[in-house]
């Protein structure tokens, strides 16, 4: 089962297309990083997944075949929006009470326990909490709903490194305990590898790359060698990015076959950050494994 599946999804705001022909499938049980530059359509895609916006064209389903925003989907999908929009004039205790009263399966004891562990005072107004505490509170409220899918829109954007670490630690601990799926969008590419095991890169409203992070890294290499042979080497591989100096060239390529390198050329592993940045620098480059078929899903589960 895919926790999010889209087919030709498109969303237009007046004359601007935020998403175009977006087709993807996110398998269950993953921590998915959604990456892309500003205006790539990340927030729009997440809003479509949680029912906050409706598609102009195409289809989107969550948790199998549920329509986003339907009562069945809302019961099982929790969302922490960008900038953590909570009622700033309420106390933390009242905010918890509001969330409890809007959700039938809200685990108040769990929420209060987490807030105690995070040392967030229950009587303090939400607006008086630090940015990190507000983010932790929003996450706590979402986790207390016992979701099957947790959607986080730029959760780390406003946080300092320590708060980022604490936030993601809370997410990872909850995932380890409950096994739900997570999709989070982020600009902080350097930290993705520590948390995510699945990657979606969006650019200009389209899916540019998606797949298992380990598979993506294994499927790419950084080749380096004499600049005069770079064109010849480039013909043997699908080149994502080329960097040429006076005597030396670096090619980020997809390694699909057993092509041998000419002498004088070296192959090196590519980091996730290098890979993502390379694709983002060249929006025309794309790598789309596409959604897993049921057979592929079965194989993955067995292995």
């Amino acid at each position: 089962m895919n926790v999010v599946e889209t087919s030709g999804l498109a969303k237009r705001y007046r004359s601007t297309w935020a998403l175009r022909d977006c087709t993807l499938a996110v398998p269950a049980g993953r921590i998915v990083a959604l990456v892309g530059p500003n205006g790539a359509g990340k927030t729009t895609l997440l809003h479509c997944a949680v029912g906050l916006c409706t598609a102009t064209n195409g289809n989107i389903t969550v948790l199998g075949d549920l329509a986003p925003g339907s009562l069945d989907a809302l019961e099982r999908v929790a969302f922490v929006a960008q900038d953590v929009p909570l009622y700033k004039y309420l106390s933390v205790r009242s905010m918890v009470a509001v969330a409890r009263n809007l959700n039938s399966r809200f685990d108040q004891a769990q929420a209060e326990e987490r807030l105690r562990a995070l040392e967030i005072p229950p009587d303090r107004k939400v607006g008086k909490l630090s940015g990190g505490q507000q983010a932790q509170l929003a996450l706590t409220l979402s986790l207390a709903r016992d979701p099957d899918l947790l959607v986080l829109d730029e959760p780390l954007a406003r946080l300092d490194p320590l708060a980022r670490h604490d936030f993601m630690a809370l997410v990872m601990a909850a995932v380890a305990a409950s096994g739900f799926s997570v999709i989070f969008s982020s600009h902080v590419v350097s930290e993705l590898e520590r948390f995510a095991d699945y990657l979606i890169v969006l650019a200009r409203g389209r899916v540019q790359m998606l797949g298992d992070i380990d598979d993506l890294l294994a499927g790419h290499a950084m080749l380096s060698g004499p600049v005069e042979e770079s064109d010849l080497v480039g013909e043997q591989f699908a080149v994502v990015q080329t960097r040429k100096a006076a005597r030396h060239a670096e090619l980020l390529v997809r390694t699909t076959g057993n092509s041998e390198l000419p002498s004088g050329w070296e192959s090196d592993h590519v980091s996730l950050e290098e890979l993502v940045l390379a694709y983002l620098r060249d929006p025309s480059a794309s790598m789309l494994p596409g959604p897993l078929t049921p057979d592929e899903l079965e194989v993955s589960e067995v292995t």
């Binding site: 089962m1 926790v3 398998p27 269950a28 049980g29 993953r30 948790l63 199998g64 069945d72 019961e75 099982r76 039938s104 399966r105 099957d148 899918l149 096994g179 799926s181 590898e193 520590r194 095991d197 298992d212 992070i213 380990d214 598979d215 897993l292 899903l297 993955s300 589960e301 067995v302 292995t303």
Partner: peptide, 15 residues
């Protein structure tokens, strides 16, 4: 990093 195999999400009883 370990890659986890996709886990099917079982439909659960509606609250």
């Amino acid at each position: 990093m370990t890659v986890r195999a996709p886990v099917p999400v079982l439909p659960r009883a509606h609250g």
